[in-house]
Design a protein around this nucleic acid. Structure first.
Length: 488
RNA sequence: GGCGCGUUGACGGAACGGUUACGUAGAGGUCUGCAAAACCUUUUAAAUGGGUUCGACUCCCAUACGUGCCUCCA
């Protein structure tokens, strides 16, 4: 089996080779916890969760860090730039610490609802301040930094390959800039490693700037870390100098990840990351998600319209992570219907007996053969740059074969194995969400079958109506009566 | 202003230089105690105009529209 990913670093699809055989270090840029995540944010985490599951099914041991940015992520509303957390705190009349806690909790709850595997390391930026200061110190000692009135900056001209990763045109960036920059900056692309608290201001989150970071003639000031330095510090501290895979949104390429590479490689002198994977955004109703339009739907909005987070997960998996996609409630409904069909197929496992097919019978039963082969085909589809649409197509093909097969010809063990693999790789909770029906309902089905064989249609229909009240829908095929869930 | 990306049938969404993607929804039909399902069919789907080619949805150029980054962003 060969895993392949489109690598932003090289610009083409590369075969994946980890540094240490059987092990992968993975860094995912996590949320800035100043507001509730919207469907676009979640789509990104669903993609990367699928990546983790894919690595696991390929028998990699995954060491994964996801950061929680709870300080230092600036808005650009004013010349000064404002910390998102501090701004959120003022909006909600809370402290920045309270805001961070509230939205971190909400994020974790959402991860759970979407069935996202929790990374071993969920790191808060504020817990890694010493590591960040140490990183800045190394940069200072190596001569990559300079201090101006509002902070300590990284001198990008000293990192010659700065523009390479994002293919930046630094001259024209400067020409087209729409925002006033601190004129003390040596270059437009220089970025803050450490920002000083504005004179006369008091922040909820601030730390004393160590003497060793400051120019000799400078007074001690309070300050806080720049955004990019948080990620570098946590990645290097936990995962080491070179990580295997780094993921994030496509928007991170030109600034955030470019800065991460510059400062990390300046510190270590080694390549920061071998594979960079970026997801494209989803639009909503054909336009970008934006606060002012109010189209940044949250999980709670989906739920209030009768959709589960797993429905949304299905919706996301229908597209490829590298393509821009479009979210509509009509599309979500379509995904929900598809998922419900899958749940009904999953429920067939309750309606068939353990098979005692011999090897020979298995090899001659077309349905069984293809059922046993499908997990392999799904993995191979996913191996091709997380090819979820193709994987879904293969599942539909397999399920449609099951639908056309009479119950006594379906191999229970093979079906369960397939369902388990789908749940493992795609996280759709098919097994959990396709429980068996009650004994009462089963008894009614038996009675109805008896009535039918006596051609007592009236009684049979009454019993079928009784089942509907229990949430069980019966459909009669040539040989069997198969039950499905009513809640479509 | 600079640098990119996209435009596939009602909707979502793939692959591929020549063969039905697939899903969801609608319509018609077959089958059937009834219902449901299943199965079959659903007209030239490829933004527009050129070009390359024996042949293009698939490659090249232009136009239109959409969208992204350059400023915080998944």
């Amino acid at each position: 089996m060969t895993l392949k990913f489109y690598n932003t670093l090289t610009g083409h699809t590369d075969e994946f080779v980890s540094q240490v055989s059987g092990k992968v270090s993975l860094y995912t840029c996590g949320p800035t916890v100043y507001d509730s995540p919207h469907v676009g944010n979640w789509a990104s985490y669903i993609y990367w969760d699928t990546l983790v599951r894919l690595l696991m099914v390929n028998e990699y041991e995954v060491k994964r860090v996801m950061n929680i940015t709870d300080v230092g992520h600036l808005t650009s509303d004013a010349d000064e730039g404002e910390d998102k957390l501090e701004k959120g705190a003022r909006r909600e009349h809370k402290t920045a610490w309270e805001v961070a806690k509230q939205y971190t909790d909400e994020f974790m709850e959402g991860m759970n609802e979407l069935n996202l595997i929790i990374p071993q390391y969920i790191t808060k930026a504020t817990d890694y301040i010493p590591d960040q200061l140490n990183l800045i110190k190394i940069l200072k000692d190596k001569g990559f930094t300079y201090q101006i009135d509002d902070g300590i900056y990284f001198e990008t001209s000293k990192f010659p390959s700065y523009a390479d990763f994002a293919h930046l045109d630094l001259e024209n960036l400067k020409a087209g800039a729409r925002v006033e920059y601190n004129p003390e900056k040596h270059s437009h692309s220089d970025f803050a490693l450490w920002k000083f608290t504005a004179i006369g201001a008091k922040r909820d989150m601030e730390w004393e700037t160590p003497r060793y970071l400051l120019d000799n003639d400078s007074e001690i000031k309070m300050g806080f870390p720049g955004w990019a330095v948080e990620c570098s510090a946590m990645a290097l501290t936990i995962l080491g100098s070179t990580i295997d895979i780094h993921t994030g949104g496509i928007d991170h390429i030109p600034v955030h990840h470019t800065n991460e590479i510059a400062q990390s490689e300046s510190v270590t002198g080694q390549k920061f990351c071998n594979y960079w994977l970026h997801n494209d955004h989803i639009k909503v109703n054909g336009t970008k998600i934006s606060k002012s339009i109010g189209n940044g739907y949250k999980l709670s909005d989906l739920k209030s319209k009768g959709f589960t987070p797993i429905d949304f997960r299905m919706f996301v998996l229908q597209g490829n992570y590298r393509n821009e996609s479009n979210f509509t409630f009509e599309g979500l409904q379509s995904a929900k219907n598809r998922l419900n069909n899958w749940r009904n197929i999953s429920a067939i496992r309750h309606q068939i007996n353990d098979t005692t097919e011999s090897e020979e019978e298995i090899n001659h039963n077309e349905t069984t053969v293809s059922l046993y082969a499908t997990p392999r085909a799904i993995i191979e589809a996913l191996d091709e740059d997380i090819g979820t649409p193709e994987a879904l197509r293969i599942i539909d093909e397999a399920f449609s074969r099951i639908t056309r097969t009479s119950l006594n010809k379906i191999n229970k063990k093979a079906l369960i194995q397939l369902l388990e693999l789908i749940d493992y790789t795609l996280g759709l909770k098919l097994i959990e969400n396709s429980p068996d029906i009650t004994d009462d309902a089963k008894r009614i089905i038996i009675e109805r079958n008896a009535a039918r064989s006596q051609q007592n249609w009236q009684k049979a229909d009454e019993l079928r109506d009784q089942l509907l009240k229990l949430g069980v829908l019966l459909r009669d095929t040539e040989k069997d009566s198969i039950w499905e869930y009513l809640d479509k």
